[in-house]
Design a protein around this nucleic acid. Sequence first.
RNA 1: GUGGCCGUAGCUCAGUUGGUUAGAGCGCCAGGUUGUGGCCCUGGAGGUCGGGGGUUCAAGUCCCCUCGGUCACCCCA
Length: 438
Amino acid sequence: MAEPQEPSGPPRAPSGTHDVLWPESARWEELVSRFARRAQMAGYGLALTPVLEEARLFRRGVGEASEVVTKEMYELTDRGGRHLALRPEGTAPVVRAFVQHRPSVPFKAWYVTPAFRYERPQAGRYRQHHQLGVEALGSDDPDLDVEVVALAAGFYDDLGLRRVELSVNSMGCEADRPTYLSALGRYLQEHASELCQEHQERWVHSPLRVLDCKRPQCRAVTEDAPRMVDFLDEACAAHFARVRAGLDALGIPHRLDPRLVRGLDYYTRTTFEFASPALEGAQNAVGGGGRYDGLAEVIGGPAAPGIGFGIGIERLLLACDAEGCFDPAVPTPDVFVVDVTGGQAARDLCQELRRCGLAAERAFGGRSLKSQLRRADRSGARAAVVVGPAELQAHRVQVKDLRGDRPDREVARAVLAVELVSDLLGGDAGTGAAGGGP
RNA sequence: GUGGCCGUAGCUCAGUUGGUUAGAGCGCCAGGUUGUGGCCCUGGAGGUCGGGGGUUCAAGUCCCCUCGGUCACCCCA
Protein backbone atom coordinates (compact mmCIF):
# COMPACT_ATOMS: atom_id res chain seq x y z
CA MET A 1 0.00 0.00 0.00
CA ALA A 2 1.55 3.25 -1.14
CA GLU A 3 1.80 6.09 1.34
CA PRO A 4 -0.52 8.79 0.03
CA GLN A 5 1.21 12.08 -0.60
CA GLU A 6 -0.41 15.46 -0.63
CA PRO A 7 -0.80 16.53 -4.28
CA SER A 8 0.32 20.00 -5.30
CA GLY A 9 -1.56 22.53 -7.39
CA PRO A 10 -5.30 22.75 -7.81
CA PRO A 11 -7.30 19.55 -7.33
CA ARG A 12 -7.80 17.39 -10.39
CA ALA A 13 -9.89 14.38 -11.29
CA PRO A 14 -8.30 11.35 -9.62
CA SER A 15 -6.22 8.96 -11.69
CA GLY A 16 -8.36 6.79 -13.86
CA THR A 17 -11.41 9.05 -13.63
CA HIS A 18 -12.46 11.65 -16.14
CA ASP A 19 -14.84 14.52 -16.73
CA VAL A 20 -17.29 14.54 -19.60
CA LEU A 21 -18.10 18.09 -20.60
CA TRP A 22 -20.01 19.76 -23.36
CA PRO A 23 -20.05 19.09 -26.26
CA GLU A 24 -18.78 15.54 -25.70
CA SER A 25 -21.49 15.06 -23.10
CA ALA A 26 -24.07 15.55 -25.85
CA ARG A 27 -23.01 12.14 -27.18
CA TRP A 28 -23.59 10.64 -23.76
CA GLU A 29 -27.06 12.13 -23.57
CA GLU A 30 -27.94 10.73 -26.95
CA LEU A 31 -26.37 7.37 -26.20
CA VAL A 32 -28.24 6.93 -22.95
CA SER A 33 -31.52 8.10 -24.40
CA ARG A 34 -31.28 5.64 -27.28
CA PHE A 35 -30.55 2.84 -24.87
CA ALA A 36 -33.40 3.90 -22.62
CA ARG A 37 -35.81 3.94 -25.53
CA ARG A 38 -34.76 0.47 -26.62
CA ALA A 39 -34.99 -0.93 -23.11
CA GLN A 40 -38.42 0.60 -22.60
CA MET A 41 -39.62 -0.84 -25.89
CA ALA A 42 -38.68 -4.28 -24.55
CA GLY A 43 -40.42 -3.76 -21.24
CA TYR A 44 -37.48 -2.82 -19.05
CA GLY A 45 -37.92 -0.07 -16.46
CA LEU A 46 -35.21 2.14 -15.01
CA ALA A 47 -33.63 0.95 -11.74
CA LEU A 48 -31.63 3.35 -9.60
CA THR A 49 -29.61 1.78 -6.82
CA PRO A 50 -26.93 3.23 -4.56
CA VAL A 51 -23.35 3.55 -5.70
CA LEU A 52 -22.40 2.35 -2.21
CA GLU A 53 -23.36 -1.13 -1.08
CA GLU A 54 -22.37 -3.35 1.80
CA ALA A 55 -19.06 -4.87 0.77
CA ARG A 56 -20.33 -8.37 1.57
CA LEU A 57 -22.83 -8.09 -1.27
CA PHE A 58 -20.00 -8.19 -3.77
CA ARG A 59 -17.86 -10.62 -1.82
CA ARG A 60 -20.65 -13.15 -1.83
CA GLY A 61 -22.31 -12.20 -5.09
CA VAL A 62 -19.52 -11.43 -7.50
CA GLY A 63 -17.29 -13.89 -5.67
CA GLU A 64 -14.23 -14.17 -3.48
CA ALA A 65 -12.42 -15.83 -6.36
CA SER A 66 -12.90 -13.00 -8.84
CA GLU A 67 -10.16 -10.43 -9.22
CA VAL A 68 -12.77 -7.73 -9.52
CA VAL A 69 -13.50 -8.29 -5.84
CA THR A 70 -10.19 -9.47 -4.42
CA LYS A 71 -7.86 -7.00 -6.09
CA GLU A 72 -9.87 -4.18 -7.57
CA MET A 73 -12.71 -3.21 -5.26
CA TYR A 74 -12.89 0.21 -3.64
CA GLU A 75 -13.74 -0.51 -0.02
CA LEU A 76 -14.26 1.86 2.87
CA THR A 77 -15.52 2.01 6.39
CA ASP A 78 -17.99 4.80 7.07
CA ARG A 79 -18.32 6.81 10.27
CA GLY A 80 -20.73 4.27 11.65
CA GLY A 81 -18.23 1.47 11.16
CA ARG A 82 -20.11 -0.05 8.23
CA HIS A 83 -18.00 -1.89 5.72
CA LEU A 84 -19.01 -0.53 2.33
CA ALA A 85 -17.82 -0.77 -1.24
CA LEU A 86 -18.19 1.32 -4.38
CA ARG A 87 -19.98 -0.89 -6.87
CA PRO A 88 -17.54 -2.67 -9.17
CA GLU A 89 -20.32 -3.83 -11.49
CA GLY A 90 -24.03 -3.38 -12.04
CA THR A 91 -25.66 -6.76 -11.56
CA ALA A 92 -25.27 -7.53 -7.86
CA PRO A 93 -26.92 -4.28 -6.71
CA VAL A 94 -29.98 -4.85 -8.89
CA VAL A 95 -30.29 -8.41 -7.66
CA ARG A 96 -29.93 -7.12 -4.10
CA ALA A 97 -32.74 -4.66 -4.71
CA PHE A 98 -34.82 -7.45 -6.17
CA VAL A 99 -34.25 -9.61 -3.11
CA GLN A 100 -34.96 -6.70 -0.79
CA HIS A 101 -38.19 -5.54 -2.41
CA ARG A 102 -39.50 -8.73 -4.05
CA PRO A 103 -41.14 -7.10 -7.05
CA SER A 104 -43.38 -9.29 -9.17
CA VAL A 105 -41.62 -11.38 -11.76
CA PRO A 106 -40.38 -11.24 -14.35
CA PHE A 107 -38.60 -8.21 -13.03
CA LYS A 108 -36.96 -6.40 -15.93
CA ALA A 109 -34.77 -3.40 -15.24
CA TRP A 110 -32.29 -1.25 -17.13
CA TYR A 111 -29.65 0.98 -15.59
CA VAL A 112 -26.91 3.46 -16.29
CA THR A 113 -24.29 3.67 -13.59
CA PRO A 114 -20.69 4.35 -12.78
CA ALA A 115 -18.61 1.30 -11.86
CA PHE A 116 -15.39 1.41 -9.87
CA ARG A 117 -12.38 -0.84 -10.16
CA TYR A 118 -8.94 -0.10 -8.83
CA GLU A 119 -6.84 -1.03 -11.85
CA ARG A 120 -3.98 0.54 -13.73
CA PRO A 121 -5.72 2.92 -16.14
CA GLN A 122 -5.22 2.82 -19.86
CA ALA A 123 -7.25 3.64 -22.95
CA GLY A 124 -10.66 2.06 -22.54
CA ARG A 125 -9.99 1.12 -18.94
CA TYR A 126 -10.81 3.46 -16.11
CA ARG A 127 -11.07 3.31 -12.36
CA GLN A 128 -14.48 4.88 -12.71
CA HIS A 129 -16.17 3.86 -15.90
CA HIS A 130 -19.84 3.83 -16.83
CA GLN A 131 -22.10 1.02 -17.80
CA LEU A 132 -25.45 0.65 -19.43
CA GLY A 133 -27.16 -2.61 -18.74
CA VAL A 134 -30.26 -4.62 -18.14
CA GLU A 135 -31.17 -7.37 -15.69
CA ALA A 136 -34.14 -9.72 -15.96
CA LEU A 137 -35.04 -11.80 -12.93
CA GLY A 138 -37.54 -14.51 -12.25
CA SER A 139 -37.45 -16.64 -15.37
CA ASP A 140 -35.05 -19.19 -16.82
CA ASP A 141 -36.85 -19.24 -20.16
CA PRO A 142 -34.14 -19.35 -22.86
CA ASP A 143 -36.18 -16.93 -24.92
CA LEU A 144 -35.46 -14.39 -22.23
CA ASP A 145 -31.76 -14.94 -22.89
CA VAL A 146 -32.45 -14.27 -26.54
CA GLU A 147 -34.38 -11.12 -25.73
CA VAL A 148 -31.55 -9.79 -23.60
CA VAL A 149 -28.86 -10.52 -26.17
CA ALA A 150 -31.03 -9.09 -28.94
CA LEU A 151 -31.49 -5.91 -26.95
CA ALA A 152 -27.76 -5.36 -26.75
CA ALA A 153 -27.18 -6.33 -30.37
CA GLY A 154 -29.92 -3.99 -31.52
CA PHE A 155 -28.40 -1.17 -29.53
CA TYR A 156 -25.00 -1.56 -31.19
CA ASP A 157 -26.80 -1.57 -34.48
CA ASP A 158 -28.64 1.60 -33.52
CA LEU A 159 -25.34 3.39 -33.08
CA GLY A 160 -24.15 2.33 -36.50
CA LEU A 161 -21.57 -0.18 -35.28
CA ARG A 162 -21.06 -2.82 -37.95
CA ARG A 163 -18.15 -4.82 -36.66
CA VAL A 164 -19.28 -5.97 -33.23
CA GLU A 165 -18.72 -9.70 -32.82
CA LEU A 166 -20.82 -11.79 -30.48
CA SER A 167 -19.38 -14.83 -28.74
CA VAL A 168 -21.55 -17.19 -26.71
CA ASN A 169 -20.94 -20.11 -24.44
CA SER A 170 -22.74 -22.04 -21.75
CA MET A 171 -21.22 -22.43 -18.32
CA GLY A 172 -23.64 -25.16 -17.28
CA CYS A 173 -25.21 -25.27 -13.86
CA GLU A 174 -24.44 -26.51 -10.36
CA ALA A 175 -25.39 -30.03 -11.42
CA ASP A 176 -23.07 -30.46 -14.36
CA ARG A 177 -20.21 -28.13 -13.63
CA PRO A 178 -18.39 -30.34 -11.09
CA THR A 179 -18.18 -33.12 -13.66
CA TYR A 180 -16.69 -30.72 -16.15
CA LEU A 181 -14.28 -29.20 -13.67
CA SER A 182 -12.86 -32.58 -12.76
CA ALA A 183 -12.46 -33.47 -16.44
CA LEU A 184 -10.78 -30.15 -17.10
CA GLY A 185 -8.64 -30.64 -14.01
CA ARG A 186 -7.44 -34.03 -15.18
CA TYR A 187 -6.60 -32.61 -18.59
CA LEU A 188 -4.73 -29.64 -17.18
CA GLN A 189 -2.79 -31.86 -14.83
CA GLU A 190 -1.56 -33.90 -17.78
CA HIS A 191 -0.49 -30.76 -19.59
CA ALA A 192 0.56 -28.67 -16.61
CA SER A 193 4.16 -28.41 -17.76
CA GLU A 194 3.07 -26.93 -21.09
CA LEU A 195 1.09 -24.07 -19.53
CA CYS A 196 2.40 -20.56 -19.20
CA GLN A 197 4.42 -19.85 -16.11
CA GLU A 198 1.62 -18.19 -14.22
CA HIS A 199 -0.90 -20.96 -14.82
CA GLN A 200 1.53 -23.76 -14.00
CA GLU A 201 1.06 -22.53 -10.49
CA ARG A 202 -2.52 -21.41 -10.57
CA TRP A 203 -4.48 -23.89 -12.67
CA VAL A 204 -5.48 -25.90 -9.61
CA HIS A 205 -6.93 -22.87 -7.90
CA SER A 206 -8.88 -21.53 -10.89
CA PRO A 207 -8.90 -23.98 -13.80
CA LEU A 208 -11.49 -21.98 -15.74
CA ARG A 209 -9.17 -18.98 -15.88
CA VAL A 210 -6.67 -21.02 -17.88
CA LEU A 211 -9.23 -21.14 -20.69
CA ASP A 212 -9.20 -17.36 -20.76
CA CYS A 213 -5.41 -17.05 -20.86
CA LYS A 214 -4.15 -15.41 -24.03
CA ARG A 215 -0.57 -16.64 -23.86
CA PRO A 216 0.32 -18.97 -26.72
CA GLN A 217 1.35 -21.84 -24.44
CA CYS A 218 -2.01 -21.91 -22.71
CA ARG A 219 -3.85 -21.34 -25.97
CA ALA A 220 -2.16 -24.39 -27.42
CA VAL A 221 -3.06 -26.54 -24.45
CA THR A 222 -6.67 -25.39 -24.16
CA GLU A 223 -7.28 -25.80 -27.89
CA ASP A 224 -8.02 -29.45 -27.25
CA ALA A 225 -9.16 -29.19 -23.64
CA PRO A 226 -12.55 -30.59 -22.63
CA ARG A 227 -15.29 -28.11 -23.47
CA MET A 228 -18.02 -27.17 -21.05
CA VAL A 229 -20.60 -27.39 -23.82
CA ASP A 230 -19.87 -31.12 -24.11
CA PHE A 231 -20.61 -31.67 -20.43
CA LEU A 232 -23.95 -29.92 -20.19
CA ASP A 233 -26.71 -32.01 -18.67
CA GLU A 234 -29.85 -32.55 -20.68
CA ALA A 235 -31.67 -29.47 -19.40
CA CYS A 236 -28.71 -27.14 -19.85
CA ALA A 237 -27.96 -28.51 -23.30
CA ALA A 238 -31.56 -28.02 -24.38
CA HIS A 239 -31.55 -24.53 -22.90
CA PHE A 240 -28.41 -23.56 -24.76
CA ALA A 241 -29.67 -25.05 -28.00
CA ARG A 242 -32.85 -23.05 -27.71
CA VAL A 243 -30.87 -19.86 -27.07
CA ARG A 244 -28.73 -20.40 -30.15
CA ALA A 245 -31.74 -21.28 -32.27
CA GLY A 246 -33.41 -18.11 -31.06
CA LEU A 247 -30.44 -15.97 -32.02
CA ASP A 248 -30.43 -17.61 -35.45
CA ALA A 249 -34.14 -17.01 -35.82
CA LEU A 250 -33.68 -13.32 -35.07
CA GLY A 251 -30.76 -13.08 -37.45
CA ILE A 252 -28.20 -12.29 -34.80
CA PRO A 253 -24.83 -13.64 -35.91
CA HIS A 254 -22.86 -15.28 -33.14
CA ARG A 255 -20.01 -17.69 -32.66
CA LEU A 256 -19.65 -20.44 -30.09
CA ASP A 257 -16.53 -19.82 -28.06
CA PRO A 258 -16.07 -22.80 -25.75
CA ARG A 259 -13.28 -20.95 -23.99
CA LEU A 260 -15.36 -17.87 -23.19
CA VAL A 261 -15.07 -17.64 -19.43
CA ARG A 262 -16.22 -14.52 -17.74
CA GLY A 263 -14.49 -13.13 -14.72
CA LEU A 264 -17.40 -12.87 -12.34
CA ASP A 265 -18.19 -16.01 -10.36
CA TYR A 266 -21.95 -15.88 -10.57
CA TYR A 267 -22.41 -16.92 -14.17
CA THR A 268 -24.35 -20.08 -15.06
CA ARG A 269 -25.61 -21.41 -18.38
CA THR A 270 -25.61 -18.72 -21.09
CA THR A 271 -22.66 -16.33 -21.18
CA PHE A 272 -21.86 -13.90 -23.96
CA GLU A 273 -19.50 -11.14 -24.89
CA PHE A 274 -19.50 -8.45 -27.56
CA ALA A 275 -16.10 -7.44 -28.92
CA SER A 276 -15.19 -4.66 -31.30
CA PRO A 277 -12.30 -5.61 -33.59
CA ALA A 278 -12.15 -1.94 -34.55
CA LEU A 279 -10.61 -1.23 -31.16
CA GLU A 280 -6.86 -1.50 -31.11
CA GLY A 281 -5.32 -3.16 -28.13
CA ALA A 282 -6.54 -5.51 -25.48
CA GLN A 283 -9.54 -3.54 -24.25
CA ASN A 284 -11.90 -4.55 -27.02
CA ALA A 285 -14.84 -6.01 -25.08
CA VAL A 286 -17.67 -3.52 -25.43
CA GLY A 287 -20.24 -5.52 -23.52
CA GLY A 288 -20.85 -8.82 -21.88
CA GLY A 289 -23.13 -10.73 -19.60
CA GLY A 290 -24.87 -13.93 -18.93
CA ARG A 291 -27.20 -15.89 -16.80
CA TYR A 292 -26.83 -16.02 -13.01
CA ASP A 293 -29.43 -18.48 -11.82
CA GLY A 294 -27.91 -18.90 -8.36
CA LEU A 295 -27.08 -15.29 -7.51
CA ALA A 296 -30.28 -14.29 -5.73
CA GLU A 297 -29.93 -17.26 -3.41
CA VAL A 298 -26.25 -16.69 -2.84
CA ILE A 299 -26.97 -13.27 -1.42
CA GLY A 300 -29.65 -14.66 0.84
CA GLY A 301 -32.79 -14.26 -1.21
CA PRO A 302 -35.24 -16.66 -2.78
CA ALA A 303 -34.22 -18.85 -5.66
CA ALA A 304 -34.66 -16.66 -8.71
CA PRO A 305 -32.96 -17.17 -12.04
CA GLY A 306 -31.73 -14.12 -13.86
CA ILE A 307 -29.80 -12.81 -16.82
CA GLY A 308 -28.32 -9.50 -17.82
CA PHE A 309 -25.49 -7.63 -19.45
CA GLY A 310 -23.33 -4.59 -18.99
CA ILE A 311 -22.03 -2.29 -21.72
CA GLY A 312 -19.08 0.02 -21.08
CA ILE A 313 -19.97 3.48 -22.32
CA GLU A 314 -16.42 4.78 -22.69
CA ARG A 315 -15.34 1.75 -24.70
CA LEU A 316 -18.46 1.85 -26.76
CA LEU A 317 -17.74 5.44 -27.74
CA LEU A 318 -14.15 4.51 -28.57
CA ALA A 319 -15.49 1.78 -30.84
CA CYS A 320 -17.82 4.30 -32.48
CA ASP A 321 -14.88 6.63 -33.07
CA ALA A 322 -12.88 3.77 -34.55
CA GLU A 323 -15.70 2.94 -36.93
CA GLY A 324 -16.50 6.59 -37.57
CA CYS A 325 -20.12 6.22 -36.57
CA PHE A 326 -22.47 7.79 -34.04
CA ASP A 327 -21.60 11.44 -34.42
CA PRO A 328 -24.88 13.05 -33.39
CA ALA A 329 -25.40 16.75 -33.98
CA VAL A 330 -24.73 18.91 -30.97
CA PRO A 331 -27.92 20.74 -30.02
CA THR A 332 -27.85 24.45 -30.76
CA PRO A 333 -30.12 27.31 -29.71
CA ASP A 334 -33.02 28.24 -31.96
CA VAL A 335 -32.56 31.90 -31.34
CA PHE A 336 -29.94 34.20 -29.85
CA VAL A 337 -31.09 37.44 -28.26
CA VAL A 338 -28.81 40.43 -28.75
CA ASP A 339 -29.52 43.41 -26.52
CA VAL A 340 -27.47 46.59 -26.45
CA THR A 341 -29.88 48.55 -24.27
CA GLY A 342 -28.75 47.21 -20.93
CA GLY A 343 -29.90 43.63 -20.80
CA GLN A 344 -33.41 43.87 -19.42
CA ALA A 345 -34.90 43.18 -22.83
CA ALA A 346 -32.72 40.10 -23.30
CA ARG A 347 -33.65 38.91 -19.84
CA ASP A 348 -37.36 39.19 -20.54
CA LEU A 349 -37.29 37.98 -24.14
CA CYS A 350 -35.29 34.85 -23.31
CA GLN A 351 -37.78 33.92 -20.64
CA GLU A 352 -40.70 34.49 -22.96
CA LEU A 353 -39.20 32.63 -25.91
CA ARG A 354 -38.21 29.67 -23.76
CA ARG A 355 -41.74 29.47 -22.40
CA CYS A 356 -42.93 29.26 -25.96
CA GLY A 357 -40.71 26.26 -26.57
CA LEU A 358 -37.76 27.94 -28.25
CA ALA A 359 -34.21 27.28 -27.14
CA ALA A 360 -33.03 30.82 -26.48
CA GLU A 361 -29.52 31.96 -25.63
CA ARG A 362 -27.96 35.37 -25.01
CA ALA A 363 -24.73 37.02 -23.95
CA PHE A 364 -24.11 38.39 -20.50
CA GLY A 365 -22.08 41.27 -19.19
CA GLY A 366 -23.06 44.14 -21.47
CA ARG A 367 -20.96 43.25 -24.49
CA SER A 368 -20.72 45.27 -27.67
CA LEU A 369 -23.13 44.66 -30.51
CA LYS A 370 -20.39 43.16 -32.58
CA SER A 371 -19.36 40.84 -29.81
CA GLN A 372 -22.91 39.69 -29.18
CA LEU A 373 -23.55 39.03 -32.84
CA ARG A 374 -20.32 37.09 -33.10
CA ARG A 375 -21.47 34.94 -30.24
CA ALA A 376 -24.86 34.55 -31.82
CA ASP A 377 -23.19 33.26 -34.94
CA ARG A 378 -20.89 30.87 -33.11
CA SER A 379 -23.68 29.55 -30.93
CA GLY A 380 -25.15 27.93 -34.01
CA ALA A 381 -28.49 29.66 -33.49
CA ARG A 382 -30.60 29.91 -36.60
CA ALA A 383 -31.83 33.41 -35.86
CA ALA A 384 -30.77 36.46 -33.90
CA VAL A 385 -33.14 38.91 -32.30
CA VAL A 386 -31.57 42.36 -32.01
CA VAL A 387 -32.79 44.98 -29.58
CA GLY A 388 -31.25 48.46 -29.80
CA PRO A 389 -32.43 51.81 -28.46
CA ALA A 390 -34.58 52.45 -31.55
CA GLU A 391 -36.29 49.08 -31.36
CA LEU A 392 -36.81 49.46 -27.65
CA GLN A 393 -38.44 52.80 -28.22
CA ALA A 394 -40.71 51.45 -30.96
CA HIS A 395 -41.56 48.19 -29.16
CA ARG A 396 -40.10 46.32 -32.06
CA VAL A 397 -37.15 43.98 -32.59
CA GLN A 398 -34.96 43.13 -35.54
CA VAL A 399 -34.84 39.50 -36.61
CA LYS A 400 -31.76 38.31 -38.47
CA ASP A 401 -31.54 35.03 -40.33
CA LEU A 402 -28.11 33.71 -39.37
CA ARG A 403 -28.04 30.60 -41.55
CA GLY A 404 -29.71 31.62 -44.78
CA ASP A 405 -29.86 34.78 -46.87
CA ARG A 406 -33.28 35.97 -45.86
CA PRO A 407 -33.06 39.76 -45.32
CA ASP A 408 -33.34 41.26 -41.85
CA ARG A 409 -36.84 42.18 -40.83
CA GLU A 410 -38.57 44.16 -38.10
CA VAL A 411 -41.20 42.53 -35.97
CA ALA A 412 -43.46 43.98 -33.30
CA ARG A 413 -42.27 42.76 -29.95
CA ALA A 414 -45.74 41.61 -29.02
CA VAL A 415 -45.85 39.07 -31.84
CA LEU A 416 -42.17 38.04 -31.81
CA ALA A 417 -42.66 34.72 -30.05
CA VAL A 418 -45.49 33.68 -32.31
CA GLU A 419 -43.51 34.67 -35.40
CA LEU A 420 -40.42 32.78 -34.32
CA VAL A 421 -42.30 29.68 -33.27
CA SER A 422 -43.94 29.64 -36.66
CA ASP A 423 -40.64 30.28 -38.43
CA LEU A 424 -38.32 28.03 -36.53
CA LEU A 425 -40.53 25.26 -35.22
CA GLY A 426 -42.73 24.88 -38.25
CA GLY A 427 -45.73 26.80 -37.03
CA ASP A 428 -47.62 24.38 -34.82
CA ALA A 429 -45.39 23.86 -31.82
CA GLY A 430 -45.24 26.03 -28.77
CA THR A 431 -48.62 27.66 -29.08
CA GLY A 432 -49.85 25.89 -26.00
CA ALA A 433 -46.73 26.54 -24.03
CA ALA A 434 -47.19 30.26 -23.42
CA GLY A 435 -48.62 31.49 -20.17
CA GLY A 436 -48.15 29.99 -16.75
CA GLY A 437 -46.15 31.42 -13.92
CA PRO A 438 -42.50 32.46 -14.09
C1' G B 1 0.24 -4.68 -9.20
C1' U B 2 4.92 -5.30 -13.11
C1' G B 3 7.50 -3.20 -17.39
C1' G B 4 8.20 0.40 -21.90
C1' C B 5 7.23 5.34 -23.91
C1' C B 6 5.49 10.36 -23.05
C1' G B 7 4.18 15.32 -20.02
C1' U B 8 5.98 22.99 -23.28
C1' A B 9 -0.45 28.27 -23.53
C1' G B 10 -7.64 26.16 -23.17
C1' C B 11 -6.41 22.57 -27.74
C1' U B 12 -2.63 20.56 -31.47
C1' C B 13 2.45 21.11 -31.40
C1' A B 14 7.70 23.74 -32.51
C1' G B 15 11.86 24.71 -29.28
C1' U B 16 18.72 23.31 -32.82
C1' U B 17 25.22 20.01 -29.22
C1' G B 18 22.30 22.68 -21.90
C1' G B 19 23.24 29.54 -23.41
C1' U B 20 19.64 36.38 -23.33
C1' U B 21 12.87 38.56 -21.91
C1' A B 22 9.89 30.23 -24.23
C1' G B 23 7.24 30.40 -29.94
C1' A B 24 3.31 29.05 -33.92
C1' G B 25 -1.59 27.61 -35.51
C1' C B 26 -6.49 27.09 -33.66
C1' G B 27 -9.57 28.97 -29.76
C1' C B 28 -10.64 33.27 -26.52
C1' C B 29 -10.93 38.90 -25.90
C1' A B 30 -10.77 43.74 -28.22
C1' G B 31 -10.31 47.06 -32.37
C1' G B 32 -10.70 47.99 -37.86
C1' U B 33 -17.37 49.86 -38.99
C1' U B 34 -20.35 56.39 -33.64
C1' G B 35 -25.98 50.00 -34.49
C1' U B 36 -24.78 44.64 -37.28
C1' G B 37 -22.25 38.15 -37.18
C1' G B 38 -19.56 34.84 -40.76
C1' C B 39 -14.39 36.20 -44.48
C1' C B 40 -10.15 39.36 -43.93
C1' C B 41 -6.61 42.64 -41.21
C1' U B 42 -4.42 44.51 -36.51
C1' G B 43 -3.62 44.10 -31.48
C1' G B 44 -4.23 41.70 -26.58
C1' A B 45 -4.76 38.26 -22.65
C1' G B 46 -3.08 33.48 -21.43
C1' G B 47 2.70 29.34 -19.68
C1' U B 48 4.96 27.60 -11.61
C1' C B 49 7.97 24.31 -19.46
C1' G B 50 3.25 18.35 -14.68
C1' G B 51 5.48 18.78 -9.40
C1' G B 52 9.89 18.35 -6.10
C1' G B 53 15.04 17.68 -5.55
C1' G B 54 19.98 17.43 -7.83
C1' U B 55 24.25 18.42 -11.48
C1' U B 56 26.03 23.15 -13.74
C1' C B 57 28.49 29.74 -14.32
C1' A B 58 23.76 28.49 -16.88
C1' A B 59 18.34 23.38 -17.15
C1' G B 60 12.19 23.30 -21.15
C1' U B 61 16.82 20.53 -22.56
C1' C B 62 21.02 16.14 -18.21
C1' C B 63 20.14 12.83 -13.44
C1' C B 64 16.84 11.04 -9.34
C1' C B 65 12.08 10.92 -7.08
C1' U B 66 6.99 11.84 -7.61
C1' C B 67 2.20 12.85 -10.06
C1' G B 68 -0.47 12.25 -14.56
C1' G B 69 -1.18 10.11 -19.46
C1' U B 70 -0.31 6.12 -22.80
C1' C B 71 1.06 0.99 -24.47
C1' A B 72 1.87 -4.15 -23.12
C1' C B 73 1.03 -7.77 -19.17
C1' C B 74 -3.03 -8.70 -15.91
C1' C B 75 -8.20 -8.00 -15.66
C1' C B 76 -12.60 -6.71 -17.76
C1' A B 77 -16.88 -2.73 -19.73
